[in-house]
């Protein structure tokens, strides 16, 4: 009886156990790892992507996928930099960039929901188009010349905690609440589990699906602002491959690729997992090519563990 309990416990928290194990190993292996400074570096590293991953997790739970998030971040970043460089006040530029993100989401979500297309295809097309647009309007070069005050948004910190980390915490708090305690959040889970049943229950499936994309793309706008502020330029090649990182974070964190199941808290763990691994490998001086191999293998393992977990649960 006791054995079964231990087994259940290990099964349920295996990702956390592996994470703790990884932290302990790295702490022993390298004395720079568990310093306040390095912890903040890791958190800062994942902070901007983690905001994109919020939207991605919601989209996957709703039964869809969005491949265009990286391109949208790049496009929004470029637009924001151009607006500010041409003298538009910072706060107006910020609002506009987030709005532009929302409009893009309205297009991808609206088309997906209304025409009942597969979001994979719709966003695959948009991924190409917005990356291309970002490069076209900048001629391929980063757009610099941003106001100094703007840099503070990402660079400042309070009591040793970087603003970026605070943004992450605030956004997660808000969206964890939305997913769990609002009609909108509950509708997302319902649609991802059984769309027909949700529709017959009087849930406006099209609207909810579209809204999820609007929110996700608006969050890409937010991420674009933070990224632009962090690197002090609008780079059309930035955020390359972020869609895959966000998907990996969500999946490692236990979100079901088929929709209906998943938690934002899990996504943070998933991102931390990848972030700590990357950080540790740098500290240990692992060769850059090898880092990618190891990262890939770890994601692979995590996905397998997750599926075993789910089967045990059922």
């Amino acid at each position: 009886m006791k054995n079964i309990k231990i087994k259940d416990f290990v099964m349920k928290y295996i990702m956390y156990i592996v994470l703790v194990f990884m932290v302990i190993t790295l702490t022993v292996a390298n004395d720079k790892f568990l310093t306040l400074n390095n912890v903040m570096t890791i958190l800062k590293q994942i902070s901007i992507q983690s905001i994109v991953a919020i939207g991605m997790t919601m989209i996957i739970i709703s039964g869809n996928i969005d491949l265009s998030v990286g391109s949208i971040v790049a496009f929004c970043s470029v637009i924001g930099a151009m607006l500010m460089a041409s003298g538009v006040p910072v706060w107006i530029a910020i609002i506009l960039v987030v709005l532009i993100g929302a409009v893009i989401g309205f297009i991808s979500g609206g088309v997906t929901a209304k025409l009942k297309l597969h979001s994979f295809l719709v966003t695959l097309a948009l991924m190409q188009a917005f990356r291309g647009l970002a490069q076209t309007i900048t001629g391929g070069y980063p757009k610099a010349g941003l106001p100094d005050a703007f840099g503070g948004i990402a660079a400042k910190s309070v009591a040793g905690v970087p603003f970026l980390v605070l943004y992450m915490i605030v956004f997660y708090a808000v969206f964890v609440y939305i997913m769990k305690y609002t009609a909108f959040g509950r509708s997302i889970y319902a649609i991802g589990s059984n769309e027909e049943s949700a529709r017959l229950s009087g849930i406006n499936v099209e609207r909810v699906k579209t809204m999820v994309f609007v929110i996700s793309s608006a969050l890409c706008g937010v991420a674009a602002i933070l990224l632009t502020s962090k690197v002090r330029s609008g780079d059309p090649t930035c955020a390359n491959g972020w869609e895959m990182d966000a998907i990996a974070g969500a999946i490692i964190g236990g979100t079901n690729m088929a929709g209906g199941e998943g938690k934002l808290g899990g996504t943070v763990i998933g991102l931390l997992f990848v972030g700590i691994l990357a950080n540790g490998m740098v500290l240990l001086g692992v060769n850059a090519y090898m880092q990618s191999v190891i990262k890939g293998l770890v994601i692979f393992l995590a996905v397998i563990i997750n599926s075993i977990q789910k089967r045990a649960h059922n």
Partner: peptide, 29 residues
């Protein structure tokens, strides 16, 4: 099974699906 219920969800969540509007408070459900 296909249209009436979401089988992998708790009973009360299934009930709540039709009355999300009624469960709404100023913030949250």
């Amino acid at each position: 099974k296909e249209e009436g219920l979401i089988l992998n969800m708790p009973l009360h969540t299934n009930l709540g699906m039709t009355i999300l509007d009624k469960l709404k408070r100023i913030i949250g459900l």
